[in-house]
Design a protein around this nucleic acid. Sequence first.
DNA 1: GCAGAAACCTACAGGGTGTAGGTTGGGCGC
DNA 2: GCGCCCAACCTACACCCTGTAGGTTTCTGC
Lengths: 196, 196
Amino acid sequence: MTRAGLTPAVVVADAAALADEAGFDALTLSAVARRLGVQTASLYAHVRDRAALLDGVTALAMGEVAARIATGIAGRSGRDALRGYADAFRDYAREHPGRWAAMQRRAGPAAVAAPSAVDVVALTDALLRGYALPADQRVHVVRLLGSTINGFVQLERIGSFDHSAPAPAASWDRAVDALDTLLRAWPAPDPEESSA
Amino acid sequence: MTRAGLTPAVVVADAAALADEAGFDALTLSAVARRLGVQTASLYAHVRDRAALLDGVTALAMGEVAARIATGIAGRSGRDALRGYADAFRDYAREHPGRWAAMQRRAGPAAVAAPSAVDVVALTDALLRGYALPADQRVHVVRLLGSTINGFVQLERIGSFDHSAPAPAASWDRAVDALDTLLRAWPAPDPEESSA
DNA sequence: GCAGAAACCTACAGGGTGTAGGTTGGGCGC
DNA sequence: GCGCCCAACCTACACCCTGTAGGTTTCTGC
């Protein structure tokens, strides 16, 4: 009998494919084993346990998203860059729903420490160079940007926009425009609040 | 032996408590049965299956959130109302993480048709009366608002803000301010886009 | 060509879901 | 106040998933 030639990377890649097809929480070791034509127990030689497999998919997804962002903002600035940045997330979530779901959870230390997480931060920083923002406001802007983009993608995915017209794409355009407007005229912190 | 006196509502309420304590995906029928001092099989007389139990928790959570929003915006308008509205979501998520997680998923038809879902829509509409918005922009604003609030709460919950300073609360203040600013000067749709 | 390290296997214990069918308790008719 | 009967709760079981222990087979380095 010829061997399947498994490695941790192969197992994680197959798990990611399964997550996209069947949903992230249908991601079980037995299902991966079936897809690979292998006994379930054999997988434990490559991944410590189910949690490690899920973390692997999370790390894989973060790397892929980082690559998409990089191409999405390359050669652009301002609103165009913002659009490319935001679309990188949304397109990825549409094409890879299971991998996207893998990122919408508290990940284990291994996934958090992955270099791709740092990449995303650096790319976001690069995007914001196109906007004149006070240094002490940057972190707030980064968080707001992430919140809106992730939130929109998440709500679209779970069907929250299915019960109203028009199609989400129109709202997406408006949301990116709104973020661009906001970043160009970021409100200065209220002096009362910062002194209180 | 005295009976436990179960009803669907009791089972769902206990499941919600368990979700908050142990996490939404630790929400199993066996665990609920243990908490109630009952055999697992007995629960199937009250909930059809595990999916129905989860949907029950989702519907319960939506009702509770709607109630919080109502008190959060009562007697306020403009920025104060927005703040109350947004805090209703965030505070609820902090106090009831498991119930919150129950809402961050594609829910079954039963949960979607729940009256509390309609309540949230109506309350959001009431909030937006405090801002002068063209009728055709309302849906986009509602979606953006939901995206940012849900997204922030979600990212805060999964620890995305844990690796940068300052505390998320400061960014939350800025985010609500930014949304208020945005709603007061909602950018008109680009004529090019709407005609294209 | 052979020793050893992987890769892969079988076997099993433990726990979760869901079904079938039995037993018991409490409310209601009379 | 007695019995009926419904529903609440039970035991027993089949099936799937996780994770461990320990055996066998294939590939690789020398």
